[in-house]
């Protein structure tokens, strides 16, 4: 029996769950269990865990709170959140505060879970840890070196807001349709994508997920007015989005997010190995094709600069997609 020298901590207030996880994982990993957040943090202080799996819904301390503390205590530990039912607020917080690696839904798939844990352990053991960013005060100026920020949103106000925030330190491209976004991504070296989950009638998350799987150094920030937990779960697991900004947008918060997104991008570029920490699940097959067809269908109605280019547009659009995401 091969036993990976990986240390995993399972946290759930329900003893049945932690015992079950222990039985599932103990064949491959060294498994510790805790039935409360306090107990878990105590263990994290004593041991050097590669992965912490925590249930969200626990008394006293929620899973997000436990994982946030774990991130502070042990930055190299990969964090996985176990959720039984969808709580939008908890999920957004888990993304923004705990930077979780994966969401796992109960009941879990017993063949998949060990694989996810194994991947996380591999990353934890092999990939370097970025130095945790110091707390950034809200009034600090945005530090940027001419990076390009792509804003995709129906509301032009969003593009202006971002442009106002970064000033001359970074270039901001705004578009309200995905065909243009593809064009910009092909032609420009985009560092940060700020995108609404839906643009027009098209689900924009697929673009973000596809971009992240091929270009992990791009930092993605999602804006969302709607509260569909499944969308966000998929985005974190397949898109490794960096932050969620719920609409309506608070300018101070957006500035903080931009600040740290630019910094994150800087870190990812300077040390490409870091991107492995943000490895994504394989995007479901056909996502690119369905995105291309959706964008092509929507394109004739869109008043775009690209559309004005005429007949060759459709062909160039498909080519653009393929160039971006590799062969289909």
């Amino acid at each position: 029996m091969t036993r990976l020298a990986g240390k995993v901590l399972c946290v759930d207030d329900e003893p049945g769950i932690v015992r079950s996880l222990q039985w599932l994982l103990q064949k491959q990993f060294e498994v510790f269990t805790a039935t409360s957040g306090a107990e878990a943090l105590e263990l994290v202080k004593q041991h050097d865990f590669d992965v912490v799996i925590s249930d969200q819904r626990m008394p006293v301390m929620t899973g997000v709170e436990v994982l946030r503390e774990v991130r502070k205590l042990s930055p190299r530990t990969m964090r996985i959140l176990l959720t039984g039912y969808s709580d939008m607020q908890a999920i957004v917080r888990s993304v923004n505060e705990s930077e979780v690696f994966r969401f796992i839904n109960k009941p879990w798939n017993i063949s998949e879970l060990p694989k996810v844990v194994a991947q996380a352990i591999t990353i934890a053991k092999t990939q370097p840890v970025e130095t945790p960013a110091a707390e950034i005060p809200e009034d600090a100026p945005i530090i940027a070196n001419g990076e390009r920020i792509l804003v995709i949103d129906d509301d032009p106000e969003m593009g202006r807001a971002v442009a106002d925030l970064v000033g001359a330190s970074a270039k901001v491209s705004y578009t309200r349709n995905l065909a243009d976004a593809v064009g910009i991504l092909n032609n420009e070296d985009v560092s940060v994508i700020i995108s609404e989950t839906r643009v027009g009638t098209i689900d924009a998350t697929r673009l973000v997920r596809l971009m992240k799987s091929k270009h992990p150094e791009i930092v993605t920030v999602m804006l969302t007015g709607e509260s569909d937990a499944d969308t966000i779960t998929t985005l974190i697991n397949q898109g490794q989005i960096y932050r969620f900004v719920p609409k309506p947008i608070r300018t101070g918060y957006l500035k903080l997010v931009l600040q740290s997104a630019l910094r994150k991008h800087g870190a990812l570029v300077s040390d490409p190995a870091l991107t492995f920490r943000h490895a994504v699940e394989t995007t479901s097959a056909g996502a690119m094709e369905s995105l291309i067809s959706d964008v092509e269908r929507a394109a004739p109605q869109a008043e775009t600069a690209a559309a004005a280019k005429g007949g060759g547009f459709m062909a160039s659009l498909g080519a653009g997609f393929r160039r971006l995401f590799g062969a289909g």
Binding site: G16, L24, G84, K106
Partner: peptide, 21 residues
């Protein structure tokens, strides 16, 4: 119903896991 579903989910999760194992 959502609460009950969640409540059911926990024993269901570990029972399913255990039985499969």
């Amino acid at each position: 119903v959502a609460g009950v579903a969640h409540q059911l989910n926990t024993p269901l999760a570990f029972s399913q896991n255990n039985i499969l194992m």
